[in-house]
Structures are given as structure tokens and as C-alpha cells.
Design a protein around this nucleic acid. Structure first.
Length: 660
DNA sequence: TTAGGGTTAG
């Protein structure tokens, strides 16, 4: 069998005629094309440059520095070595090396080279300064930034829009919006400077100033609108962002992407999908980033059909399932309960990144398949893929759900000893969960008190959850109180403590928790359940009556009550927080969002198809019980994914063993 | 001369 070399030897390089001397143009062409993906070819070209005396050409030398600084080649110091070979570097060569330093995350070195440049014969030009401002921004050092600004003024480059926009970004990145605005208002109006300014204001939370500037602009471009939409989304003002978005005279790929992603980040997945539909309606072709955002929205509302559509669309349009889109699809299918499809995507991905492995391991963990998650991790080790902290969060979660305490403990040690991954507060949370679920409460508590950082509310929450399951009232009470003090605005914390009291029959204390909650003015996060019927996402909140088919849904609920009571169903009211009458509690329970969603599923789907519901919070014990019975009485497969994990109900049984 | 800016990205 013969092997073919992918890299061509010299005589195949595109010299027009091998007897003619190679031109500057073809060398530059080589550097900017083939050499970007092959260090070998870059070295060959370097040799060719030296051999043909082209190294004296400053433009060639500078371009060579740029090529060596390409992160693809893991440059470290190679571009510096090239730079130091250049006799009497001119401004272009200096600019090249300064840019290369910044591109390789060494902004400090960029400033060192700038000061050397100033000390040499070469005079900085307008191309020198944008990258220097960037260096100061990365270093978060406004003092250096001010010095650079002085040099700009002294050398007369304040008229340049590129220089000024970089200065605006530098100043506003450290909150100095007044200085930024002064730079922005200097000289000729430049739309990019204004856009950078709008972005700066919004990053500093100065919404009024941003909209003031926005309104004052007469020649806005798409970037201006995008800056406004992006900024508002980042300030958590999705509704306002949407208003601006709707007014846009034209939208580009970024506009759509920002809006869809903005909805995602604020938990409004249904709205995100609606915007995506509008995008398709306007015949805009989505690319991989939008597709991956939409995949995530599908995962979060439980839209398997739309998720499959995204996958098929990518296939049809030959969009590669790379580290971004492929991983998003793996994660999506796993969250939609289709580990088989997640695995198909994972296997077909040519370039798997750590995040891809993480998504697959996390997916297995979520489904309680701890052993498979560990097996996959071993494969990852074999393939010499360096795991990161997220990998271990997935593994530890898998161990916690699967009750593999010893494996989990070993994993925690190996993470540090073998992989040098320092445990974060998340890892400690997993460990507390792992020990707590297994009933090793004392060890879990000890870990919380001995961890090297301040325990986050989530860590306390894991411990408290364990206290509740293992009915350790004393520890639970202590932890519950600590947790409420630490995180007084989180309604879930009160609910947990209240549940602990309720389980112990301490109704007086339940009442006290409720009063405290009122005093602290806590807003509870409402549970929302979604179900996708024929591509339309239906969302339910507790006691929802907005749905067009609300009457039928409640009739179905009534029917369910009758049928389930015949099966001997008794409501589990212990998790109802409020100090209300017992029969009222039962009514409340029946109005829970997942029950409404399932009632709707029963009336709107055919008997053979599984009913898939997704809930943003943890399912309560009563819902778990009811759905189990419904699956039996109505002979339906029901899949509910809540915030923690999968519950697959069939014939009155649930695949999820560790429900709490 | 040649190069460089703002808005997105699991």
C-alpha cells in the first residue's frame, strides 16, 4: 500500500516557473494560505525566504512573524526569534511583533516591544495604536492606557477612527465612560466609534446614556442596532431588546443570533424558537451558531421534532457537526432523552473537543448511567484527550446519581493528582451530594466545613437535600437556617427547610418559615412545564388557565382524579409549602404545571406516542406518584425531564431510582 | 504601499 504525503515539497510550490526567482507575491500567498495549517510548510517557506534573500524585505519579514504567531502552531517564542533576526526593523515589522504578542496573550510583552520601538529609529504609525489599546484593555490597566492615549495625541493619530474605537473600548472596559465619550466625540463622526460607545455604556449598565446616544444617531448601521440589542440582553432586559430588534430596518446573521441567544440566556426558550421561525420565514439561512442556540432551546423545551429538524437541516446543507454544533446536538439529544441519537452524533463527529466528550459524559450521568459515563471517560483517557473541570463535574454527578461513592471519591483524588485539575466549588458540591445521597451525612458535613473556599449556597443546598432524604432533622434545621441567611432571596431554600419540618410534622415551624419568607419579600421561581405538540411548544404554569384548551385540560384533570382514586391514590401533601387547609392543598397539587402539561398531552396525542414533558424545576413527590399511576391507568409512556434528571414512566414504574 | 475597528459564538 502506498502512502501519499499531504504536504508538497518545494518544487510543487506555486512558483510560476521553477527557473524564475520566486516573487514576493507568491511567498505572501503561501504564508497566508497553506502555511496557516502546516508548521512544516511554514518552516519550508521560511527556509525559502532566507535562501532567496527575501528576508530583507520588511513586508515579508513582518508577514513571517505573523505566520509564526498563529495560535495553530503553538508559537510560544518562535515569532520573537524571527523578529530578532530582522536587521533594522521598520514600523511594519514592529507592528507585526506587537500584534503577535497580543494575539498570544502576552499584552505586557507587547508594551515592552512598543517601548523598544519608540527607542529605535522606527516611528509608530496609526496601525500601532489600536493593538496597544487592546493590550491595555486585556491587562485591565487604565494607567498604561492613558499613556498610550497621550502618545496618540502627541503623534497626531486621534483623527483615525480605528485608533479612537480601540481607545473607547479600552476606557469603557474599565468603567471610564466619561473618557470614552470624550474620545468618541472627538473630530469627525465615526459610526464604529459610536457603536463601541453604545456597547461601552451598556456594559457599564448606563442604559439611559446608551439609548440617548442611539436615538441621537442619524446614520445608524446594522452594527448600531446589534450593539443596542446585545447590550440590552446582557443587562437582562430581553423585552426591551426585543422591541429594538422588532424596529430594525434590516437584520443580519448577528441580529438573529443575538436575539435567539438572548432569549435562551434568560430562560425564554419558547420565545427563542419563535424568533427562529421568524428568521426562517424571512428566508435567512441559519449557520452553525444559530443552529446550536436553537438546539439548546429545543433541549430546554423538550422539542424532539424541532431538534431533529435542526439536525436534518445541518445534514442537508452540509454544515459540519463540529465542536460547536455537534456538541450542541449531543447535549440536546441527551436532554431530550434520546441517548441513542446523542451517541450517533457523538460518534460521527470528526473532531471531538473536550466539550463534546463532556456533553456525552454529562448526558449519560443525567440518565443515571454512571458506569457508561465512567467507561466513556476511560476511552477519553485512551484517546489522550485532556479532561477539564467540566468533565469531572459530569463524572462526579454520574457517581452521585449512581450511588458509586467509592468511585466518586477516587475520581475526586485522580482529578487533582493525575490531571492537576484543582477542584472548584462545583466539584465540592458534587462530592457533598455524592456522600449525602449515600447517607454519609457526617462526612458530607465535614467536607463542607473543611473545603478551601467559602461554600456556595448550592453546596449547602446539596447537604440540606441529603438531610431531607435521610430525615436528619437536627442537621437539616441547622443547615437550612444557614442557607436562608446566605441566600435569602432564593425561595427554594425556604421550601426545603419547610419540607423538612413538614416531614417531621412540625407544622408550627412550617408556618414560621412561611412568615420569614414573606418578611424577606422572596419571590418564588414559578415552575414551568413545556410540551411540544406538532412543533408548537405549549407552556404551563401552576394553575394556568390561559391555554386555549384550558377547559378540556381541566376536564381531563377531573377525570384523572377519579381514575387515580379508584387505583387507591392518596395525595402526598407533605411538600406543599403553605399553611393551608388539607383539601386546598390537594387542589393546589392538581394544578401543578407538569400535571397540566400531561393532561394536555393525553387529550392531544395518539395512544402509541410517548408524552414528553420538560420542567425547569425539580418535580415534587406527588407529581412523581401521579404520573406513575397515569402511565399505568392510561397505558402511556411518559418521559419527564426536570432540572435534575430523567424520569421515564411505564406501566406504573419509573426508571429513576433515586427520586427525592 | 502592504496591516488594523464595533455587534454573536457550548
Amino acid at each position: 500500500m502506498t502512502t501519499t504525503t499531504t504536504e508538497l515539497p518545494y518544487h510543487h510550490l506555486p512558483t510560476e516557473n521553477p527557473n524564475q526567482p520566486i516573487s514576493q507575491k507568491s511567498l505572501l500567498n503561501l504564508l497566508t494560505t497553506k502555511c496557516t495549517t502546516s508548521l512544516h510548510l511554514l518552516k519550508q517557506t521560511h527556509a525559502l525566504i532566507l535562501k532567496t534573500n527575501h528576508f530583507q524585505d520588511h513586508f515579508i519579514a513582518g508577514s513571517l512573524i505573523k505566520s509564526y504567531s498563529n495560535p495553530f502552531h503553538n508559537p510560544s517564542t518562535s515569532f520573537l526569534q524571527v523578529f530578532h533576526q530582522v536587521p533594522n526593523p521598520n514600523v511594519f515589522v514592529w507592528n507585526s511583533v506587537i500584534t503577535a504578542c497580543v494575539d498570544n496573550n502576552d499584552p505586557c510583552l507587547a508594551l515592552v516591544y512598543y517601548s523598544n520601538m519608540v527607542g529605535s529609529n522606527a516611528k509608530p504609525n496609526k496601525f500601532t495604536y489600536p493593538v496597544l489599546f487592546k493590550a491595555c484593555m486585556v491587562m485591565k490597566c487604565v494607567d498604561y492606557g492613558v499613556q498610550v492615549h497621550c502618545h496618540v495625541v502627541k503623534n497626531g493619530f486621534m483623527d483615525d477612527g480605528y485608533v479612537r474605537s480601540a481607545a473607547i473600548r479600552m476606557y469603557s472596559s474599565v468603567g471610564r465612560v466619561v473618557e470614552a465619550r470624550m474620545v468618541c466625540d472627538y473630530g469627525e463622526k465615526d459610526v464604529v466609534c459610536f457603536n463601541a460607545m453604545i456597547n461601552g455604556y451598556l456594559k457599564c449598565g448606563e442604559i439611559e446614556s446608551a439609548s440617548g446616544l442611539f436615538d441621537s444617531m442619524t446614520k445608524k448601521n446594522v452594527g448600531t442596532w446589534n450593539a443596542m440589542v446585545t447590550g440590552l440582553v446582557k443587562c437582562g432586559m430581553v423585552e426591551d431588546a426585543r422591541k429594538v430588534f422588532d424596529e430594525m430596518p434590516e437584520r443580519d446573521e448577528i441580529s438573529w443570533s443575538v436575539m435567539i441567544d438572548g432569549y435562551n440566556k434568560n430562560g425564554c426558550f419558547k420565545e427563542g424558537l419563535e424568533v427562529f421561525r421568524a428568521m426562517l420565514g424571512e428566508k435567512v439561512m441559519p449557520k452553525k451558531f444559530v443552529l446550536s442556540s436553537v438546539a439548546s432551546a429545543c433541549a430546554n423545551v423538550g422539542s424532539l421534532d424541532q431538534g431533529k429538524w435542526i439536525h436534518a437541516y445541518a445534514k442537508q446543507n452540509s454544515i459540519e457537526l463540529d465542536g460547536v454544533l455537534g456538541t450542541a446536538l449531543v447535549d440536546m439529544y441527551a436532554k431530550l432523552g434520546r441517548l441513542d441519537l446523542a451517541w450517533d452524533v457523538f460518534e460521527t463527529m470528526k473532531r471531538k473537543e473536550v466539550s463534546s466528550w463532556n456533553a456525552m459524559i454529562g448526558g449519560l450521568a443525567m440518565h443515571g448511567r454512571a458506569k457508561d459515563a465512567i467507561e466513556l471517560f476511560l476511552q477519553m483517557e485512551k484517546k489522550r484527550v485532556q479532561p477539564d473541570e467540566i468533565t469531572f463535574v459530569g463524572l462526579l454527578n454520574a457517581c452521585a446519581h449512581g450511588g458509586l461513592v467509592d468511585v466518586g471519591l477516587e475520581c475526586f483524588d485522580r482529578m487533582q493528582d493525575v490531571y492537576g485539575v484543582e477542584p472548584t466549588v462545583h466539584h465540592y458540591g458534587c462530592m457533598v451530594d455524592l456522600l449525602g445521597r449515600a447517607g454519609r451525612l457526617a462526612e458530607a458535613e465535614e467536607l463542607v466545613y473543611n473545603m478551601p473556599m467559602t461554600p456556595s449556597p448550592a453546596v449547602w443546598g446539596a447537604l440540606l437535600g441529603a438531610c431531607r432524604v435521610h430525615e436528619n432533622i437536627d442537621m437539616g434545621e441547622k443547615i437550612g437556617k444557614t442557607l436562608i441567611e446566605l441566600d435569602p432571596q432564593n425561595g427554594g431554600r425556604y421550601a426545603l427547610l419547610s419540607n423538612i419540618y413538614a416531614k417531621a410534622g412540625r407544622w408550627g415551624d412550617v408556618k414560621k418559615v412561611r412568615t420569614l419568607m414573606k418578611q424577606n419579600g422572596v419571590k418564588t421561581t414559578t415552575g414551568r412545564s413545556t410540551i411540544d405538540i406538532d412543533g408548537i411548544v405549549h407552556e404551563f404554569k401552576i394553575g394556568d388557565s390561559d391555554h386555549p384548551r384550558a377547559r378540556e385540560i381541566y376536564e381531563m384533570v377531573e377525570e384523572m382524579i377519579v381514575k387515580l382514586e379508584l387505583e387507591g391514590y392518596v395525595p402526598k401533601t407533605s411538600e406543599v409549602l403553605f399553611d393551608i387547609e388539607e383539601d386546598e392543598k390537594e387542589t393546589t397539587l392538581w394544578r401543578h404545571s407538569e400535571k397540566l402539561a400531561i393532561a394536555f398531552g393525553l387529550i392531544s396525542t395518539s395512544p402509541g406516542t410517548p408524552i414528553r414533558v420538560t420542567k425547569n424545576l425539580r418535580m415534587c413527590e406527588d407529581c412523581h406518584l401521579v404520573i406513575k399511576l397515569v402511565s399505568c391507568v392510561y397505558k402511556r409512556d411518559i418521559v419527564v425531564r426536570d432540572r435534575l434528571r430523567f424520569h421515564h414512566f411505564r406501566n406504573g414504574k419509573c426508571s429513576c431510582k433515586d427520586f427525592w
